[in-house]
Write a protein that binds this DNA or RNA. Structure first.
Lengths: 155, 155
DNA sequence: AATCGGATGGAACACTATATCATCGGGCGA
DNA sequence: TCGCCCGATGATATAGTGTTCCATCCGATT
């Protein structure tokens, strides 16, 4: 997802965001975040586990799920429900404690698997308005748009 | 989800929609659709399997997943990704063959689990516009809004 | 030192979904 | 009528995703 330099920068910003919030970005959590950020596409928990085992042979499913829960909780990553996979947040650290994340949407390419996060306020507003008309109090909205990315659609 | 009479009506309409499209709503598929429609909330595949076993002791996971695939394919049910569960479509049969469904959104209550399907054209348009700006060709969009339903928010 | 709480280690298990091969039965042409 | 094809179903096994539970470690506090 990110080049090495950009990844280091993102990790550093994550550390600072956690520090501000009184959350501990431990070496394990930081390492899992790094693995998510270096993946090309959204990455599954067990793929992360395999990679994590290179550095931590004893790692088991709860190891990675606990780290993922922390990162989700603090808005550093998102889960892509349609793929059962995780991706770095393009806008990490811009929330408050226990804010599971800002409104966002994903564009998921069927063909190449590339997944892009977008932040479209018109979509967010339309959702907020529709929910309000139903008397519904929104805590979080999942918007996952599947189709063909520009590159694959052209091909 | 539906009272007995409304359920019968929905099943009958599903039969007619399938007939129009040259699809076979076999007894098994009809039975699974009935189980989905009579559930209070979105229902998981294995919960359906348990109920199906009452009538068909030999039923196994593929039995129910194949039926669900057919029903999804023909727009008679939807999958709620956040819950890994299935729910009847509120607008069944209004599509064409291999049209996996019209634009729709879900309101999922965290507290009581009630899940309502809504069809909000402003949301659909905002999504289409955002995708188009990215050169993305949409085939299907998942919109799942989690929070508190009007009843639970009032309590 | 005693204790308390968050983080991690580790085994087992629960839940969700798919692969694979066999069988059945209706439609259809030779 | 026979043989064939093909979609649907039966049945077993396995893959993939996520959780529960208990133990341990370690730093902070008292």
């Amino acid at each position: 997802m990110l080049e090495a330099a950009a990844r280091e920068k993102a990790l550093h910003e994550a550390e600072q965001a956690c520090a501000r919030r009184g959350a501990q970005l431990t070496p394990l959590r930081r390492q899992v975040l790094g693995l998510v950020l270096e993946a090309e596409s959204p990455v599954g928990a067990y793929a992360l586990l395999d990679r994590l085992k290179a550095a931590r042979p004893g790692a088991a499913p709860p190891t990675v799920y606990r780290a993922l829960d922390f990162l989700l909780e603090h808005g550093l990553i998102h889960k892509v429900e349609r793929l059962n996979a995780y991706i770095g947040c393009s806008d990490a650290g811009h929330g408050h404690a226990h804010d599971h994340g800002h409104p966002h949407q994903f564009l998921i390419c069927r063909r190449c698997g590339a997944t892009a996060e977008i932040i479209d306020h018109a979509v967010a507003h339309a959702i907020a308005a529709a929910a309000e008309r139903a008397g519904f109090v929104v805590s979080e909205a999942t918007v996952e748009i599947e189709g063909l990315c520009a590159r694959c659609a052209a091909a």
